Lab assay of single mutants.
Amino acid sequence: MAEQVALSRTQVCGILREELFQGDAFHQSDTHIFIIMGASGDLAKKKIYPTIWWLFRDGLLPENTFIVGYARSRLTVADIRKQSEPFFKATPEEKLKLEDFFARNSYVAGQYDDAASYQRLNSHMNALHLGSQANRLFYLALPPTVYEAVTKNIHESCMSQIGWNRIIVEKPFGRDLQSSDRLSNHISSLFREDQIYRIDHYLGKEMVQNLMVLRFANRIFGPIWNRDNIACVILTFKEPFGTEGRGGYFDEFGIIRDVMQNHLLQMLCLVAMEKPASTNSDDVRDEKVKVLKCISEVQANNVVLGQYVGNPDGEGEATKGYLDDPTVPRGSTTATFAAVVLYVENERWDGVPFILRCGKALNERKAEVRLQFHDVAGDIFHQQCKRNELVIRVQPNEAVYTKMMTKKPGMFFNPEESELDLTYGNRYKNVKLPDAYERLILDVFCGSQMHFVRSDELREAWRIFTPLLHQIELEKPKPIPYIYGSRGPTEADELMKRVGFQYEGTYKWVNP
């Protein structure tokens, strides 16, 4: 592979701008107003304001973009700056750019259920340069409990009458099928589907988006991507930290609602779906819905739930269990780990287990898709061969690698495990991989909904998990304890083995 010439960040961002501006969906010269509902909250200060700053800094926003914060707290732009700027990672050389960014910011205080507050917000936006005809993007960085009041008031008082209007809704989209349907029906009564952007930030990850290209742009994968060759698929999300004093919020939802029903299920769809007619948003989402419709409700015998306990040999936070978090209700049975087996009941995947695993306070930070292939028929190497695996590593250190057998150097035919490896950090030294939120917010500006969740996708996802969630809430089974920093409950490994996964433990990928 030829040595790549190092590029400056300015040059890299210039390439990104060229890609972005050559499309006809990006209205570079139009006025846009980006409204952050819930501007005083954690999500706004840690993710949304920093993301908008990065896009502005790199010249990736339309030229005439204004940012308006809205929340109940009586704040000023200076207050917003004070709480969000520490997350910007701005350099001293960017000081003038930073001043320009905050000059485009404003803030309006108001209630979430008060019509007069929204009329005041609308008047404020109209007073901005060309504000009355601007395109408006409303980001709901809010708890779902206020979605209905907020969307109703936005629709009645704050819509642009000339430009387009788009609304970005953060997960969780309800707690179960019934609450999700209620919320979807409410929002759909106010906005068209092409105006609604239900954001799952995992769909903005580079390697998640790469799944489609790997599958449908490489001839070698087509013939082997089926039940005849693939023994099982494992989708993993692991965090090495616990709730760390923020367990009160987590306890309301648990690990299945927080990660599995959305992030992991979306990745499953991209692995299992048929080739779409095109890369058009609805063509892709149509195929994802077909996959979900082929999955039956989760069966309790295919589920393992766990909850982390303190590690007596650990240090600091590792010595504390979930129930030691003062914000967690006493005696909570909320799971911090889950392993679930699903089956896609169609011709391509009949009988292939899709194993979804996620948890907190585990032994490493990792998100990946792992396809394990069947054993080689007619073994001539005296059971020395391990199964081939194709691994798409989402985070950290984005990579695609194939675990395969090669001859060990020497005189004899002794096979050993090795890999074919594409590590993004080595291959793409001159490429700026956008943060997931950067990519998705740019998608909203461009009107691309491919990486957002459609209402029928959402409904099918909740259909699969709601009976299990209701059973857990009714019966309150005690989750299996696992030690902070471990791989999780051993019962999860036993479940995976029972459905056909072979864990060798003899080879570990190392970032080159």
Rank of each mutant, 00 (worst) to 15 (best):
A2W: 08
A6C: 13
S8G: 08
S8L: 04
T10N: 13
T10C: 10
T10K: 15
T10Q: 15
Q11Y: 14
Q11N: 15
V12I: 14
C13G: 09
C13A: 11
G14I: 07
L16R: 10
L16M: 13
E18H: 11
E18C: 07
E19Y: 13
E19W: 08
E19V: 08
L20D: 09
F21I: 15
F21L: 14
Q22V: 13
Q22W: 10
G23P: 12
G23Y: 12
G23H: 15
D24A: 09
D24W: 07
D24P: 02
A25S: 15
Q28C: 14
Q28R: 12
S29D: 13
S29E: 14
T31H: 07
H32L: 05
H32R: 11
H32Y: 15
H32S: 10
I33C: 10
I33Y: 13
I33P: 01
I33E: 07
F34P: 04
F34V: 11
F34E: 03
I35Y: 00
I36S: 03
M37G: 05
M37R: 05
G38W: 00
A39I: 00
A39R: 04
S40H: 00
G41F: 03
G41T: 03
A44G: 04
K45Y: 06
K45L: 07
K45F: 06
K46R: 14
K46Q: 02
I48F: 03
I48S: 03
Y49T: 04
Y49L: 15
Y49K: 00
P50L: 04
T51M: 11
I52K: 02
W53Y: 11
W53K: 02
W54I: 09
W54R: 08
W54M: 10
F56A: 00
F56I: 06
F56L: 04
F56M: 07
R57I: 05
D58P: 03
D58C: 12
D58W: 09
G59Q: 07
G59Y: 03
G59N: 14
G59H: 07
G59L: 07
L60Y: 07
L61N: 02
L61V: 11
L61Y: 02
L61E: 03
L61K: 02
P62E: 08
P62K: 07
E63S: 10
E63C: 07
N64S: 11
N64I: 05
N64C: 11
T65L: 10
T65P: 06
T65G: 03
F66A: 08
F66W: 12
I67Q: 03
I67N: 00
V68M: 08
V68N: 02
V68S: 01
G69H: 05
G69C: 05
Y70P: 02
Y70W: 08
Y70I: 08
A71T: 03
R72K: 04
R72Y: 02
R72G: 02
R72V: 02
S73V: 00
S73T: 11
R74W: 15
R74I: 15
L75D: 06
V77E: 12
A78T: 08
A78R: 11
A78S: 15
D79A: 10
D79V: 08
I80P: 01
I80L: 14
K82A: 13
Q83F: 12
E85I: 11
E85R: 06
F87G: 06
F87H: 14
F87T: 07
F88T: 06
A90R: 07
T91D: 09
P92I: 13
K95P: 03
K95A: 15
L96M: 12
L96W: 13
K97S: 09
K97R: 14
L98S: 03
E99A: 10
E99P: 05
D100S: 15
F101G: 01
F102R: 07
F102G: 05
A103I: 11
R104F: 07
N105K: 00
N105F: 13
S106W: 08
S106A: 11
Y107M: 10
V108K: 06
V108Y: 10
A109E: 12
A109P: 13
A109R: 12
G110H: 01
Q111T: 13
Y112T: 05
Y112R: 01
Y112H: 00
Y112M: 02
D113Y: 13
D114P: 06
D114V: 14
D114F: 08
A116H: 14
Y118A: 07
Y118S: 05
Y118K: 05
Y118L: 07
Q119E: 14
Q119S: 14
Q119T: 15
R120W: 12
R120D: 15
R120S: 13
L121P: 02
N122A: 15
S123W: 15
S123V: 14
H124Y: 13
H124F: 13
M125K: 02
M125F: 13
M125D: 00
N126A: 14
N126M: 14
N126H: 14
A127V: 14
L128I: 13
L128C: 08
L130M: 15
L130P: 13
G131K: 11
G131C: 10
S132Q: 15
A134W: 05
N135Q: 08
R136D: 00
R136W: 06
R136T: 06
L137W: 05
Y139A: 06
Y139C: 05
Y139G: 03
L140Q: 04
L140E: 00
A141H: 04
A141Q: 08
A141R: 02
L142R: 03
L142F: 02
P143H: 00
P143A: 07
P143L: 02
P143N: 09
T145V: 07
T145L: 06
T145C: 05
V146E: 06
Y147W: 04
Y147T: 00
E148G: 11
E148F: 09
E148N: 09
A149I: 15
A149D: 13
A149P: 12
V150Y: 04
T151V: 11
T151S: 13
T151W: 10
K152A: 10
K152P: 00
K152I: 13
I154P: 06
C158N: 09
M159E: 14
M159S: 15
Q161E: 13
Q161V: 13
I162Q: 09
I162F: 15
I162R: 15
G163Y: 05
G163N: 06
W164S: 07
W164R: 07
I167A: 06
I167P: 02
I168T: 07
V169D: 01
V169I: 13
E170C: 03
K171Q: 03
P172F: 04
R175Q: 11
D176H: 05
D176Q: 04
L177F: 09
Q178H: 15
Q178F: 13
Q178R: 14
S179C: 05
S180K: 00
S180H: 06
D181I: 05
D181G: 10
D181H: 07
R182H: 10
R182Q: 15
R182G: 14
L183M: 07
S184F: 11
N185Y: 12
N185K: 14
N185W: 10
N185E: 12
H186N: 11
S188H: 14
S188Y: 05
S189R: 14
S189A: 12
S189P: 10
F191Q: 03
E193M: 00
E193Y: 01
Q195P: 01
I196P: 02
I196D: 00
Y197T: 01
D200I: 01
D200M: 01
H201F: 04
Y202E: 04
L203A: 04
E206F: 09
M207Y: 02
M207H: 04
V208S: 05
V208C: 15
Q209H: 05
Q209D: 05
N210L: 04
N210F: 04
N210E: 05
L211T: 06
L211I: 09
M212E: 02
V213Y: 09
V213M: 12
V213W: 09
R215W: 05
R215T: 04
F216I: 06
F216S: 04
N218F: 01
R219Q: 08
I220R: 01
F221D: 00
F221P: 03
G222N: 14
P223V: 05
I224G: 07
W225M: 05
W225S: 02
N226Y: 07
N226K: 06
R227N: 10
R227H: 11
R227Y: 09
D228R: 08
D228Q: 13
N229H: 12
I230W: 00
A231Y: 05
V233H: 01
V233P: 05
V233N: 02
I234D: 06
I234N: 13
L235Q: 02
T236D: 09
T236W: 00
T236M: 05
F237Y: 00
F237C: 13
F237V: 12
K238P: 03
K238D: 04
K238H: 02
E239K: 02
E239V: 01
P240V: 09
P240M: 09
F241M: 08
G242L: 02
T243Y: 06
T243Q: 02
E244V: 14
E244D: 15
G245V: 01
R246S: 00
R246I: 01
G248F: 06
G248M: 06
Y249T: 02
F250P: 05
D251C: 03
D251S: 07
E252P: 08
E252T: 14
F253M: 05
F253P: 02
G254H: 01
G254N: 09
I255R: 01
I256V: 13
